[in-house]
Amino acid sequence: MSDKKVALSDEKVDLIISILLRVGVVISSLTVLAGGLFYLLRHEEQTPNYHIFVGEPSQLTSVRGIIETATTLSGRGIIQLGLLILIATPIMRVAFTVVSFLIQKDRVYVGVTLIVLSVLLFSLTGGR
């Protein structure tokens, strides 16, 4: 293949993806950890009963709701924000790949990655 002529080589793309994934996991882990400390120190852990399924309240299930809850410094909200960052990490990776295929002018794979990206974004809205 004639990758060498392209400004953004496959190797460079690999390197950027690897940094992106690492940064995403570290930031989300730290956010979950911080939220966890809030959660435990403030005794938000009130004998949880996970045996009975009730589902989460709406402020912890949508992107906007989670960000709003986290800004009130609720432990559960901050943890959920960290989890959202974690879920966003592979999505960011796919988004970056779309861009890299665009730069490489690989039209077939711009299409492929756009399909993957839209399934991911659609699922985050619960398919509604």
């Binding site: 979950v32 939220g35 966890g36 959660y39 938000e44 852990e45 949880p48 996970y50 589902g55 989460e56 309240p57 709406s58 912890l60 299930t61 949508s62 432990g75 559960r76 909200g77 943890i79 959920q80 989890l83 959202l84 879920i87 966003a88 990490t89 592979p90 999505i91 399934v119 991911l120 699922s123 985050l124 809205t125 619960g126 398919g127 509604r128």
Partner: peptide, 19 residues
């Protein structure tokens, strides 16, 4: 991430347990 998106928006991801 595709599955987790659906679970999150359905309210199946509890922060107290997932943390």
């Amino acid at each position: 991430a595709a599955s987790a998106g659906v679970y999150l928006s359905r309210g199946y991801i509890d922060p107290g347990l997932a943390m």
